[in-house]
Simulated assay, not measured.
Amino acid sequence: MIRAMLLAGAVLLPAPLAAQDHSGHGSKSEPAPEMDHCAMGHLPPEQCGKQEESEPTPAMDDGMAGMDHGSHGAMTDKSAPGAAPESAIPARALEGPRHAADAIWGEDAMAPARRELARGNGGMTTGMVLVERLEARIPTDGGESGYLWDAQAWYGGDLNRFVLKTEGEGEFGGAVEDAEIQALYSRAIGPFFDLQAGVRFDPEPDSRTHLVLGVAGLAPYMFHVDGALFLSDRGDLTARIEAEYDQKITQRLILQPRIEAEFAAQDIPERDIGAGVTKVEPGLRLRYEIAREFAPYIGVEYEAKLGETADLARAGGEDPDGFKVLLGVRAWF
């Protein structure tokens, strides 16, 4: 029985194979036509000569009938020399109207919207008052305790502002030792820095007026920098630079390293100042923001008079340097 089944299979197997058309096996097939990369937009125009339009071959027409060729013009062969970069802007992108919405809604309707957009993105005027330092200063060597204030206010926009600064210090129960007020015009000269110019008036220790030229802003690595030159009405040229950095320990607990240095181009005997670097004050302040607008702090600061200024302090019976413990508050509104 098994032998009969094998014999029947051997007889029927050649039948399907015999039905196939093998006439083309012995002949060489025609090569497929090459694709026209210029016509499909794969190459830049300068590499494609002027060619005559031709009808698509049946082979290509049948094989690509379902393909969407609309995006071929936007494709760029990056391996081809002279290919346009990805950042290239098509010329037609700049051919339209400046305000396309005017064609739909009309210029009268869109002009107020554009003014409001400009005002909300740099054109609005705002103001702020910042009390950067309001602190008691307790010397660690047992000297007289004192106080210090450092505040500023500004009003204006992102580019132009009026800035008012004041700072000073004194001893508790005594007179104010140093005080100054600055009125400045501030102009943005970059994304992070403002150029400031104006006047400074010192009511203490002696009445004196200065011209001011400085810069203020945010230096790389998030350092807040404020520096200025001062030319007094008596011809004295001095300078000051301050830098500070807010290091967040938590969202509310912030450690602030700060340094301030002062310079003088010449001796100022009436203020016991010598030429050169006159004073440097590095310090640390640790503040806790009970609210973003109100933060008490503690800290320590080293104050040192240098060079000829230190010599003048010693001659007057003063200690030219020393540490101070700080208790203060920072606030803004």
Rank of each mutant, 00 (worst) to 15 (best):
D61Q: 12
P45T: 13
S71D: 06
G66Q: 01
D61M: 11
S79F: 06
A83G: 11
G82V: 02
G73A: 13
A80T: 12
M60L: 13
Q51D: 09
K78H: 10
G66R: 00
H72W: 11
A65K: 11
T57Y: 07
G70I: 00
E53F: 14
G63L: 14
G82D: 04
M67V: 12
D62K: 09
P81Y: 07
G49E: 11
A83T: 03
P81K: 06
A74W: 08
A84N: 01
G73T: 04
M60F: 14
G73Y: 06
S79A: 09
P81D: 05
S71R: 05
K50M: 13
E52V: 13
A65L: 03
A80W: 14
G66E: 05
P56D: 02
C48P: 05
H69W: 09
T57I: 03
D77G: 09
D62H: 11
A83Q: 02
A65Y: 07
T57G: 15
E55S: 12
P45A: 15
C48L: 07
D68Y: 01
D62F: 08
P81N: 04
G49F: 15
A80L: 08
T76C: 08
M75Y: 10
Q47Y: 14
T76S: 09
A74Y: 08
D61E: 13
H72G: 03
K78Y: 10
H72A: 06
Q47I: 11
M60P: 00
Q51G: 11
D68K: 05
S79K: 06
M75Q: 05
G63Q: 07
T76V: 15
P45Q: 11
M60R: 02
P56V: 09
E52M: 13
E46C: 11
S71L: 12
P81W: 04
E55W: 13
M64K: 00
A74E: 10
A59C: 04
G49D: 11
C48K: 01
G82N: 07
M60Y: 13
S71M: 09
S54R: 15
Q51W: 14
G70V: 02
A83D: 01
A80Q: 12
Q51H: 15
P56N: 05
K78T: 07
M64A: 02
G66W: 00
H69Q: 02
K50R: 14
S71W: 13
E55G: 11
G70R: 06
M64D: 01
A80H: 12
A74V: 02
A84K: 05
